[in-house]
Amino acid sequence: MSPVIYYFLSFTAINILMCWAFYLPYRVGQLHHLVVSCMMASAYFSGYAARQWSWPFALTLLVGTAIGMLICLLPSFAIGDAPCFTVVIVGLTVLFIMKTAIENTRALGGTLGFFGIPQVNNLLLLAYLCLAVAGLLIYRIDNSRLGRAASMVFVDRDAASALGVDVKRLGMLFQIIAGGLAGLAGSLYAFLIGSLFPEFFNLGVIGTLMCMLFAGGHSTMWGVVISVPVFEGLHLILPTAVASWLQVIYAVTLIVVILVLPGGLITKKMLVKVGERFRARPQTVSIKGGIKE
């Protein structure tokens, strides 16, 4: 496989996982930037465990996921139902603290980076297997009682809690699962890329992921499945002179999407419509002059 395609496929898998990690807490209206810290911690842990202690791949993956969940578990007691802006700042501060800590840790390579993470056979296949499992998990959550409760919370937090939704428990649960997804993504990232640099995990990653999520559509899990490969593909075909301005492209795209297409490419409504067409219910009534938004 050519390295270009290899990188395309691996970054697509990792970014879809990360976008899902963003997606889940956003179901209850929280921009959970902490997941980038989970990814970073898990990636460094996995790299270190595999290189220094020769841990097997599967174990590293599991422990990496657990680390991600743990990192989200502790703050979630405080910010499970916190306002969005607080959650954002908690995420950003943790990321910068973690970055400083790693930059100042010799054993992890400091600012120079961490190299020599061992190769794993059939890694790409395993990564997509993980992606499928994660997707199934999110699909189940979305179509369960939890998913419906989350939709209520997103629209009106107070009304939802008046109707008996435990907003805090729901938020905590989503944050922890998101942490697990990010931990998984971090672990895979370490093995797929083989080397880690602290400056990779910055505000830019957050911008990129938010752009992918909002452009794809934040109301369903399927939007990012389309938007991530498109952006990754764009990254590959753009001439280098333009590609070095990728951050600017992401930022402008995000602003334009939010202004012009607030729901993103794929919205829940669209999925419902498509579902109806497939089921081809004969009794579908079109409501003329019905409920407009």
Binding site: G29, L31, C84, F85, V88, L203, G204, I206, G207, M210, C211, F214, W245, Q247, V248, Y250, A251, V252, L254, I255, I258, L259, P262
Partner: peptide, 28 residues
């Protein structure tokens, strides 16, 4: 202003947009 026309006065959305603006400025 365009944002508030589209979304109402949603400070969380303004947060997302201003983070993008920040990224843009930093990158420039």
């Amino acid at each position: 202003r365009a944002l508030s026309k589209k979304h109402g006065l949603d400070i969380n959305v303004s947060f997302v947009v201003s983070i993008s603006i920040a990224l843009l400025i930093t990158d420039v």
